[in-house]
Write a protein that binds this DNA or RNA. Structure first.
Lengths: 195, 195
DNA sequence: TGTACATCAGTGAACGCGCGTTCACTGATGTAC
DNA sequence: TGTACATCAGTGAACGCGCGTTCACTGATGTAC
């Protein structure tokens, strides 16, 4: 039952998009090829017409997921308080795709560190792109500090969202997110020099 | 081949300790029961004489791992710069057990969020204990800020160490850790108020 | 434009493998007399 | 203190299951004439 080129391309895209959702919910190891294909409305046999291996899908899903996040972030607010408003939206729990609640660095962070080189490269590129977006929105700061601001703000947010998901007490979970929001949003807080 | 009570208790302890090491390297899903038992010098069949399920072992290994971390942290430096020196040692890459490089919140962070209630509870308790240790070492600050200081410093460090492990560029990896160290160690940086 | 044929996306059965878990068996331990 | 017996840690084979991957087959698509 061969399909047209356009249909084939669409199907492939649909598989990647479905994989992004499945991996978010169950992790790379938790979501099986058959699960993903079924969720995409196909049988597992067709998978290998589109991908060489599950690892290849993981790498593509990771890249796609980071791209979405970067697009949403770079399309968001600009101007004076852009950096601050990015932090707000990154940490907010609504709008999955736009915030770190849908980010592989959070949702499969510990699996990423053990993943294929291609997957780690996709994750690293995504992280760098997020840095770039934040640096651009942080123009008010001196250039040599801007990179550090972005690196620190991002890793702190990723840690906070990760911890807020682990902790089993909703109050502590909220506190973790609120403290990160407050401290990162406070101008000067993350630009202060050592000692 | 029945063993004495003392031997049995020792064996059980050895299994948990071996599990901690295996889970650190391969993750909860990546390390199998048979792997762990073999690494502990036993066959897989004996496992169920000590534990009801793999999930039970995961919960105990998580608790044990956090306990070790808390012990090392609370035994470390005291006095004026205790808070700062904890941050240094948490982020340093030597002394696995004493720093966040050996911490389940980092090494299996994304798996923890999907784990059994017992495991998440162990992780949450560990996080709270680390908070307590840091609050005690941060006496110079006003009490109502100390909790927030600890929550933020911990989640930022966890995010930084997590990201440093994901990223495939050693330079960026180092930058992530250095920025976290610098900014969290800078007094006043994480105590600054909003706006 | 119409016809013949190679291509290949999708199906569903099957493959080998490793997983968590169970079980009959062994034999030293701890206990009851 | 010595003897008989129930207990139970450890072994290794086996269980059912789901995983990633392969394959023969189908039939619509795209291509060559």
């Amino acid at each position: 039952v061969k399909k047209s080129k356009a249909e084939t391309a669409e199907t492939r895209k649909r598989i990647v998009e479905t994989a992004v959702r499945e991996f978010r919910q169950k992790g790379f190891q938790g979501a099986g090829v058959a699960d993903i294909m079924k969720a995409a409305g196909l049988t597992h046999g067709a998978f290998y017409r589109h991908f060489d291996s599950k690892d290849q899908l993981i790498a593509e899903a990771c890249a796609a997921s980071m791209d979405t996040l970067v697009d949403n972030a770079s399309g968001a607010a600009e101007g004076e308080n852009a950096f601050l408003s990015d932090i707000e939206s990154f940490i907010s729990s609504e709008n999955r795709d736009g915030c770190l609640g849908g980010c592989p660095l959070v949702l499969v962070g510990s699996e990423l560190a053990r993943s294929d080189p291609e997957t780690r490269q996709a994750a690293t590129r995504g992280f760098r792109s997020l840095m770039d977006v934040m640096v651009k929105k942080n123009l008010c700061r001196s250039t040599d500090r801007a990179d550090g601001d972005a690196v620190f703000a991002l890793s702190a947010m990723i840690g906070a969202v990760t911890m807020s998901r682990i902790v089993d007490d909703p109050e502590l979970s909220t506190l973790i997110l609120e403290e990160a929001k407050r401290r990162l949003a406070a101008p000067g807080s993350h630009a202060s020099a050592r000692r």
